[in-house]
Amino acid sequence: MEDLSSVVSLLTMSSNLEHAAMSLRKILEERELDETETAALKWAGEFLRVVDWGTAVPDAQDVDGHVAVQATSIRPTFYACLFRIGPEFKEAGFTKESEVTSFLGKLYHNLEQPGAPGRGRPKLKATEADLGYQLLHGMAEALLVQVDSNGSPRPYTTDEWDQTPNEFAIASV
């Protein structure tokens, strides 16, 4: 069932990713994070690690079924957002895919454990934090577009929006 809950999931994920994106900026500016922001960063790090097939998940069997399905549904959006900031990666000096993989691993690690770097957790450079911000913010926006089409008219076949998959629709005959 294309559940009403899918819209709520998108809204929640978008909010969390946007929180995480803005928190990355705060870290860069060395400002304090509140509890919500810390939680959003942690959630984003753990979730993106499941979504990104290019970084190893510690133990795929531990992933909850619901999170696995969420990851399946969001994965194409993740890759699209990543490809979209390809020019910024090049500008920042990335030349090989292994460098991107290594950067993303570092990003997820930092998100999962926000706070002072240490114990083998390298600090993100300003350019890296900015790339992280762009990836998270881009995903947050892309998810919202899926909910409300960014203000442009929705595709429809009648005077009502029943045919759109993205409103809180759950099902039809």
Partner: peptide, 30 residues
């Protein structure tokens, strides 16, 4: 391009896998 060679493959697989999930979920539900 060089930066996303493997991830472009993953993206393609991800799209097909998600499409399968959507069809399976919608189908069994109906």
């Amino acid at each position: 391009g060089e930066l996303f060679k493997e991830r472009a493959i993953q993206d393609e697989i991800a799209k097909l896998t998600n499409a399968t999930r959507v069809v399976a979920q919608q189908g069994i539900t109906e």
